[in-house]
């Protein structure tokens, strides 16, 4: 017992200040490293075709780059690059909604109900969580080929219903902040089971939904492997495929491509800015605190 005050003295004000300085320095350095490339990206989007060296402030070619992005040459080489934005959005939004809703539903089934196969179902999902989609990629590709579903969005959207990692997060969240009394109360008030989930559980789960919606939307929006495997016609391409076509081209207009990357990134940034508030303060918020 008598040791405790000594320990406290050894971490006095001086070392706290030092730790603070280290913490802030590391943070600032990390942020500079994280943001420098994107600053350069925006600057480069205003630069011309050839971009030798580094430039710290905007150039004058932004409008030209826009015009070139719309031009027939770009269309010829890479398809309609603006349509690719829409395509990516359809796929990402569709799979995001399915993932979040059905993962929560699945987690709710296991968290709130008692039934024989409950433990087995939970363990099964945890076990398949280790299995990436790539593990069944060839079978998936050939099966979709047989069904005639390649070059459609169905193989990219519908499988999102079964998202074990999201399920895992949801059930962790429910364990920590979804008391079963709420469900009991809803039942006493005569609320149906499905309605309870839609009207009562989902609002409580909002913070978890926001976080998982972002993760899932971003994962799908970023997804390059599956769309590249499934899609084959130019008008159905998503952004990453268009970018890979651009990368394969040797004689490229850097200004145009950097501009396209900026455009491709903006919608996600907007969604992020709308939801980041939920992520940052919402995750640990309990539903019946106090």
């Amino acid at each position: 017992m008598s040791d405790a005050p000594k320990i406290k003295q050894s971490t006095g004000k001086g070392s706290l200040l030092a730790r603070r300085i280290i913490a802030y320095t590391v943070l600032v350095v990390l942020i500079v490293i994280s943001l420098l490339p994107f600053y350069l990206l925006i600057i480069n989007a205003t630069r011309g075709r050839v971009q030798a060296g580094i430039r710290w402030y905007p150039d004058q070619y932004l409008l030209d780059n826009f015009r070139n992005l719309f031009s027939a040459t770009t269309q010829n080489n890479f398809g309609n690059v603006f349509r690719a934005l829409g395509n990516s959005f359809i796929v990402a939004a569709g799979s995001c909604v399915l993932t979040v809703y059905f993962s929560a539903l699945t987690a709710y089934a296991i968290h709130a109900y008692d039934f024989k196969l409950k433990k087995i179902a939970h363990t099964f999902i945890l076990l398949i969580m280790m299995v990436p989609t790539q593990a069944s990629a060839i079978g998936f590709y050939r099966f979709m080929n047989d069904l005639g579903l390649t070059d459609t969005y169905i193989p990219l959207i519908v499988p999102a219903v079964a998202a074990p990692a999201t399920y895992f997060f949801m059930i962790q969240y429910m364990k920590s902040s979804l008391p079963l009394e709420i469900i009991e109360a809803a039942r006493i008030d005569g609320c149906g089971e499905f309605k309870t989930f839609n009207r009562i559980i989902i609002p409580i789960m909002k913070p978890a939904f926001a976080v998982q919606a972002i993760f899932s939307f971003v994962a799908s929006w970023n997804n390059f492997f599956m769309p590249q495997m499934i899609l084959s016609s130019k008008e159905k391409y998503t952004i990453p495929i268009v970018l890979s076509l651009m990368r394969a081209e040797t004689r490229i207009d850097y200004g145009v491509i950097n501009l396209y990357i900026v455009i491709a990134v903006i919608p996600v940034i907007l969604i992020y800015l709308c939801l980041s508030k939920f992520i940052i303060r919402g995750i640990a918020l309990g539903s019946v605190k106090g």
Partner: peptide
């Protein structure tokens, strides 16, 4: 029974789009 009902979408989609492809892989 509601527990089972709520589990149907997940396991159905998993069987069709992951489990069967995994076996065929």
């Amino acid at each position: 029974k509601w527990g089972y009902i709520f589990l149907i979408p997940f396991f159905l989609v998993y069987a069709v789009f992951s489990l069967y492809p995994l076996i065929s892989t």
